[in-house]
Design a protein around this nucleic acid. Structure first.
Lengths: 230, 230
DNA sequence: GAATTCCAAACTGCATACAATTCTGACAAG
DNA sequence: CTTGTCAGAATTGTATGCAGTTTGGAATTC
């Protein structure tokens, strides 16, 4: 009887996904009327959802001109990766002093259970889902919900680029596992040993390795976004 | 002729300030009609602004029940302080390798010029403004606008507690300067020496010293918010 | 041909109206 | 005294309409 989810929430979820996937091209202007028809809602709830996404950095807004997709530039993506370093390293540090042995063991266990799938999966979407899931679980060990919240936001905006990055890893190293689970394992070992320096160093180098590919990944992103096929 | 600022923006700014100052009491339900009259706008732009603030963590939202002020608990405030550590330490680290000598000198200079005012000021609002300004400038030196954005958001939500904290410092140490500018100076010196370890360590201990007071500050916050006078 | 002006069409900004849901408190039953 | 129920009041959810602004391109000028 009671509607569990409002129209705004539904529209918001749909838009977040679209914005994350760059269904709106970088800097593209968004037509409210057209979009409201596609989403089956009037402009009022649509605009409420759009405003949330502006506040989260997925979209931008200009007075009397409406909503636009966020830009896509190497420096923007670098900023996001650097912010991830900030958030995830601190989360790792906190996990070292705060997480229970059981919770750490559970994360290590998760890594072990996932490994076969990790090794065999070739679908970048699946790989990314597992990767994000690991990082999210780790952030949970920090016990800090703000860090988790920020990380979730950063992940949404960086997702498209990480997907490209994973695709490249797969294509470059045929036969080798694209997801370097060893880096994840190293981080968890550091936490298990309650060695904050080792754990954060591992996390930092893990993320920064990906960051270095950002410029190239952005270039590929543009070619994908503006070329009709595949 | 052209309106520079939309109604939504004006309402948003007003609401952000109100939310930061806990003009809405923690967990208090917000009445849209009443608020729209106070702010001189209809519910449509009001709700758009409210949605932005939900996305930024200043407010919460429940379906069919409307908007509520964010809660105020020690653990929530601790989380915010810890997130500040994450963001500001990484910003400091980046500043060490990235900021120009001139920019670092300018920050040191700002600190010197502010010192007399810092020492003499007793108004917590003024002290906090200077403190926030220093931290914002430092974040600028990182060259990372995401870190700046996140810091700005955290500062807004933690502001009320920091204000109380400064008031306590002033009242406890009569005659002594409440703003310990020495900590700030130490951070800048670390950056000037391009010594990331020293600079981030100074930043970390600076913020964590404040964090330790959080529980007590929250207690005071509640007594202020729910007692008529003072 | 390039730059400028101007107008109609398209779009955004916002108030309002009404439907849907939740809240309040009076009353009844246990 | 507590719990349950129910109708009316209050509040939120969303569609719609219109005013104000921007946009795109035809007409005009240099």
């Amino acid at each position: 009887m009671a509607k569990r989810e409002s129209n705004v929430d539904r529209v918001y979820e749909a838009l977040r996904r679209m914005a994350a996937d760059f269904a709106f091209k970088p800097d593209q202007r968004i037509n409210e009327s057209a979009l409201s028809e596609v989403l089956g809602a009037s402009r009022t709830p649509l605009r409420e959802a759009l405003n949330r996404l502006v506040a989260e950095g997925f979209l931008t807004f200009q007075n009397n001109r409406g909503f636009f997709c966020r830009p896509l530039t190497p420096s923007y993506i670098m900023d996001l990766y650097e912010a991830r370093v900030a958030v995830e390293c601190e989360a790792t540090r906190l996990a070292c002093t705060r997480a229970s042995d059981e919770d750490i063991a559970a994360l290590a266990d998760y890594l072990n259970r996932m490994e076969p799938e990790y090794q065999s999966a070739t679908d970048p979407e699946a790989l990314l889902a597992m990767d994000e899931s690991f990082h999210a679980r780790l952030a949970q060990l920090s016990g800090n919900s703000e860090l988790q919240r920020i990380l979730n936001n950063l992940n949404g905006r960086i997702r498209y680029i990480r997907l490209i990055d994973l695709k490249r890893l797969r294509d470059r190293a045929r036969g080798k596992a694209p997801g370097d689970i060893s880096a994840h394992r190293q981080i968890v070992e550091g936490i298990a040993a309650r060695n904050a320096e080792a754990a954060t160093a591992a996390m930092r180098s893990h993320i920064e390795k990906r960051r270095e590919e950002a410029t190239e990944a952005v270039r590929i992103a543009f070619s994908q976004l503006y070329v009709p096929d595949e």
